[in-house]
Design a protein around this nucleic acid. Structure first.
Lengths: 227, 227
DNA sequence: CTCCTTGTGTTGAAATTTCAACATACGTTC
DNA sequence: GAACGTATGTTGAAATTTCAACACAAGGAG
C-alpha cells in the first residue's frame, strides 16, 4: 500500500487528508487492494453496488453494450482516478455498466456504505472525505452539463462556438489554449474531424476567430461588455 | 413558511427529515424566503456563489447567453425543485449562469456553507441533508451521463435506439411507456421531430419495434439472455 | 355536428454532416 | 538530409438531417 501513497494523495477524494490519517482512514473504511489482469472484470453489470473504486496502477474502462451489440467505452481511467462513485452515492442497487481492467494493474475498492454513513469514532477525516466526494460529484455535474450544452447544439459551428465561448468565459479572456488536438476536440464535440477543420477554416476566413494549432482567439464582441 | 411545508417535505433535500426538525434546521442554516416578481433576477451571472435555492411557488429558469447572442434556457424549475446546488457544492466562486423568476413566486435561499460544513450543535438532521444532497448530485450525474451517452450517437436512429434500450433495461422489460410526446422526445434526443417520426416509422416497418402513441415494444433480441 | 386545436406521420427540397481520399506541414529517427 | 509517422487542412460525393408544408386523426368547445 505504501507504494501507492503518491497516487492516493493525488486522488481528489483524499484532498486535505495527510498520509497518516489516510492510512488509518482506509483501514477504518475496510478498503482493500485488488490486483487485476488485463481484461479482467472488476465490477460487472448487474452486481450489487457496493464499492467505490480508485485506480492505483494500470487502466480501467467503463463499458456497456450499445444498441447495435457493440461494446462502447463510456470512460477510460488512469491512476488516481475514481470510478463508480456516482453509482454508490445515488443509491442505485445494481451496476448498470461493467468496469474492466484495460491493462494489468491494481485498484483500491472501498465499501461505499462506510463512507456515506458516519462512523462512531470521532474521525475528522471522515467528514473531509464526504466533503471531497460531494465536491467531486458537483464538479462532474458541471462538466457533464457543460458538455450537454455543447452537444445540444445542432451544427458543428454551434458546438465549436459554444465550446470556445464557455472556455473563454472561464479563462476571462478571448484567447485560450485548448487541451485537445483536432481529433480529440472533434470527439469531445461529437462531430467529424474533417468537418470541424473545415468549419474552423470558415470561421477564420469570416474573421470570427484566429487559431494556430490549439490556441484560439475570439474576435467577436462576444459578451464582454454586457451581462 | 408554514404554508410551504408540503412543498419542502417533497423536496429531495429534506427526505427523511420530519417537519419539526426541518423548521429548526432551516432556522439553524439561516434560510430565508425571497419573494420574486416575474422576470426578476434571483441570482446573477458573476455573483459570488453563496446560496442554494428551492422553488417554493412560481417557476424559475436557469439561463445563459448563447454564442450567437440569444438567451438560452438551460432548465426550467417548478415547486420543490432545487437549483444552484452543483455550483455551491463544486467550490466554484462565481455564478456562471443567471437564475430568473419565470413567474411571480417565492424561493427559499439557503447559505450553502452552513450545509456543507458541520455545525457544532449535535444536529442529526444535518448529516441527513448532506447525505440527501450527495444523493441528488449523484443521481443527476447519472441522468446527465445517460443523456450524453444518447446524444453522443451520431444518427437519429442511434439516439432513439440507445434511449429505448436504456429505458428498457431500467424497466427490465422490452415494453415501455415513455414520459414524452414526440416533440419532447425529439428535444430530449436532440433531433428533429419529423425526422424522428420518420425514423420510428422505418424501424416499425423493419420489425425492430412496434409503437402506439408513447408505448414502445422492442422486438430485437436485445441483450436479455447475456451480460 | 362543426369548428378548432393539438399531436403525429409524410414528403421533397435544401442544408449539413459524414466519409474517403489526398495534400501539406512538422517533428523524429536513422 | 532523407524517410517516415502523425497532425491538420481540403475536397467532392454520398448519406443524413433539417426545414417547411401539408394530411390526417383525436378530443374539446361551441
Amino acid at each position: 500500500m505504501q507504494k501507492y501513497m503518491d497516487c492516493l494523495t493525488a486522488c481528489p477524494l483524499f484532498t486535505g487528508i495527510e498520509e497518516g490519517g489516510l492510512l488509518s482512514a482506509l483501514t477504518c473504511l475496510g478498503a482493500h487492494v485488488r490486483r487485476c489482469e488485463k481484461g479482467e472484470t472488476i465490477l460487472a453489470e448487474g452486481d450489487p453496488v457496493r464499492y467505490l473504486g480508485i485506480v492505483l496502477s494500470g487502466a480501467v474502462q467503463i463499458v456497456r453494450m450499445g444498441y447495435d451489440g457493440s461494446r462502447s467505452i463510456l470512460s477510460k481511467l488512469g491512476p488516481s482516478d475514481l470510478f463508480a462513485e456516482a453509482f454508490t452515492c445515488s443509491g442505485m442497487e445494481k451496476m448498470p455498466v461493467d468496469a474492466i481492467a484495460a491493462e494489468k494493474g491494481d485498484v483500491l475498492l472501498i465499501p461505499a456504505a462506510r463512507i456515506l454513513h458516519p462512523c462512531d469514532h470521532p474521525c475528522g477525516d471522515h467528514h473531509r472525505m464526504i466533503y471531497n466526494l460531494m465536491r467531486i460529484l458537483a464538479t462532474k455535474n458541471l462538466a457533464f452539463h457543460r458538455r450537454l450544452e455543447i452537444t445540444a447544439q445542432r451544427t458543428t459551428r454551434g458546438k465549436l462556438m459554444t465550446y470556445l465561448l464557455l472556455e473563454a468565459r472561464q479563462a476571462h479572456s478571448r484567447s485560450l489554449t485548448i487541451p485537445f488536438d483536432r481529433q480529440e476536440l472533434a470527439d469531445y464535440l461529437g462531430v467529424d474531424r474533417s468537418g470541424l477543420s473545415a468549419e474552423i477554416g470558415r470561421l477564420r476566413r469570416e474573421g470570427v476567430l484566429s487559431c494556430t494549432r490549439n490556441h484560439f482567439t475570439l474576435h467577436t464582441a462576444g459578451e464582454d461588455e454586457q451581462a
